[in-house]
Design a protein around this nucleic acid. Structure first.
Lengths: 103, 103
DNA sequence: GTAACCTACAACCAAATGGTTGTACGAGAA
DNA sequence: TTCTCGTACAACCATTTGGTTGTAGGTTAC
């Protein structure tokens, strides 16, 4: 999923379809690459669950999935939590140290 | 930077060095791959600013950079903001619609 | 029905990625 | 000093990635 977000074009597609759904060809018109290339990007995003594609007439409407974004946020939050736990440990060490000094 | 986080081994290195700094060889001992491979992963993380490497005697101490994590969080927060803006627009449309009905 | 449009998918290609081994070098330990 | 350890870096390899073109199948419009 981070792998899916690793490409700038794909991040842009996510951003865009999160704000307003669009057909694959509408998306493709925005980028300096072939239709097939954009189609592949959408497929990667869909497989990662960042986007869903539903048929409407002869087009496929691409829609960003906010839940997937929140899952990525959760992952980064865990990183922050690990970091804060480290700081807490250091604080505890310092406190134990000054307590020892006052003995 | 999302590209740097796209690899599971690298995410683990970030998590680990965020919680406690470690030398490159200490990190390398944890993974089922060669020292050189881990070294490359650390280099990728360093280039992405997710980690910093400082010499201590004959080893290089790797330390996770919490600021970089916050920058990634900020990026995902922007995605959420775009999403919420879309919902707000839809709400406004619905409200305008019901106002028209009551005419 | 036929033409035009949107999409899916295969085949192909260059470059990047993730891994390996081997060599070299600086810093500590014996 | 010499040996060992930790690191850096180059060369190489297989696979994946990001892109292309071409072909084929459905849907809508005329």
């Amino acid at each position: 999923m981070f792998r899916a977000l690793a490409d700038a074009t794909r991040r842009d597609i996510v951003r865009r379809t999160l704000s307003a759904e669009a057909s694959v060809s509408e998306l493709a018109a925005s980028y300096e690459m072939s239709f097939a290339a954009v189609q592949k990007h959408v497929a990667v995003l869909e497989e990662a669950g960042l986007v869903s594609k539903l048929p409407r007439g002869r087009e496929r409407i691409v829609r960003g999935n906010p839940d997937a974004i929140r899952r990525a946020q959760f992952c980064l939050d865990q990183f922050e939590a690990v970091w804060r736990a480290r700081i807490d440990r250091l604080d505890a060490l310092l406190e134990a140290d000054s307590a020892q000094e006052s003995d």
